[in-house]
């Protein structure tokens, strides 16, 4: 599977961050993960390899159930047992790494803390003094566009705003790699596009290396420099696509013909996998129905 990455690199599409000598920030090297043993075992991730360069925005896209979340947990260090190597700075990830900041798919703000205290949470863990904590948190609250909401509780915010709080909370810890798992999954399409703008803007401002895990095509193409297309169960690298859309981007990019071309191209890859996933899910449901009735 290493050759897939090599192919992509040799694709002659000009990388957005052209730094041929630069070392990859994050190296995924022949990573596999299976759950269970024997015939009931599920191979969630199978021999995946790809790199993320400094300042690059990479998306991993695949149908539901393709092992994306497993990959997310491995890179984030929450899934400590796996085969292969996830390397940051030449050290193998086994446990949460200070260089990786995670944004979760689920609603993950602390309901008992206001926006400011939510965002300041990682600094609190590092025993940063109160005034510095407030200043640094404030900076990222403004960055995600929530100034004026510092004293609000999460329950008073919309879903999109809460997710921005989560993103600010992760950014404040100064991660070299921002790792996001379907951060907009629970949001509606318009909010998603606008939040995408915010993400692009932040990424360009901070030159934040980012790995986004998603099943949403539009989102992936809108935001990424490169897209890693995954297969359905076991999760493998099917193809890596360079997205050669101009930067700085906004959500307007979705109306350009180039954008449509990329979406169509990746959908062609994804369609097979999604179809297979749906068929297997339906077969599974049918089997369950039989055992339930029998």
């Amino acid at each position: 599977m290493n050759n897939a990455a090599a192919n992509a690199a040799g694709d002659k599409a000009v990388p957005v961050m052209p730094a041929p000598a630069a070392e990859a920030q994050l190296v995924i090297d022949r990573v596999s993960k299976r759950f269970g043993e024997g015939p009931g075992a599920v191979v969630a991730v199978d021999d995946m390899s790809f790199d993320v360069m400094p300042g690059e925005f990479v998306a991993c896209i695949g149908p539901s159930g393709c092992g994306k979340s497993t990959l997310f947990n491995i890179i984030g260090g929450l899934q400590e047992e796996y085969v292969g190597n996830v390397m940051i700075d030449k050290s193998r990830i086994a446990g949460p790494h200070a260089a990786v900041g995670m944004v979760f798919q689920e609603e993950s703000t602390f309901p008992w803390r206001n926006v400011l205290d939510n965002v300041a949470f990682p600094l609190e863990l590092q025993n940063v003094g109160q005034s510095e904590r407030r200043d640094r948190a404030q900076k990222f609250i403004s960055l995600v566009g929530l100034q004026g909401f510092e004293k609000r509780m999460p329950s008073e915010l919309s879903g999109g705003m809460r997710q921005r709080v989560s993103i600010a909370r992760t950014l404040v810890s100064g991660p070299r790699i921002l790792l996001m798992d379907e951060p907009f999954a629970a949001l509606d399409e318009q909010t998603r596009l606008l939040l995408g703008d915010k993400i692009t803007q932040i990424q360009q401002e901070l030159h934040q290396t980012t790995l986004l895990i998603t099943h949403n095509l539009t989102e992936a193409v809108q935001l990424s420099d490169r897209i890693v297309v995954m297969t359905y169960r076991p999760g493998r690298v099917k193809r890596i696509v360079n997205i050669d859309l101009p930067r700085p981007r906004t959500s307007d990019v979705v109306s350009s013909p180039a954008f449509g071309k990329y979406v169509a191209e990746i959908w062609g890859d994804l369609r097979e996998e999604a179809t297979r996933g749906m068929e297997e899910a339906e077969a599974g449901a049918a089997a369950r129905g039989k055992t339930a009735r029998g």
Binding site: F35, G36, E37, G40, A41, V42
Partner: peptide, 8 residues
């Protein structure tokens, strides 16, 4: 997630 310990 199937846990090996669950059966035991």
């Amino acid at each position: 997630m199937a846990d090996a310990g669950a059966g035991r």
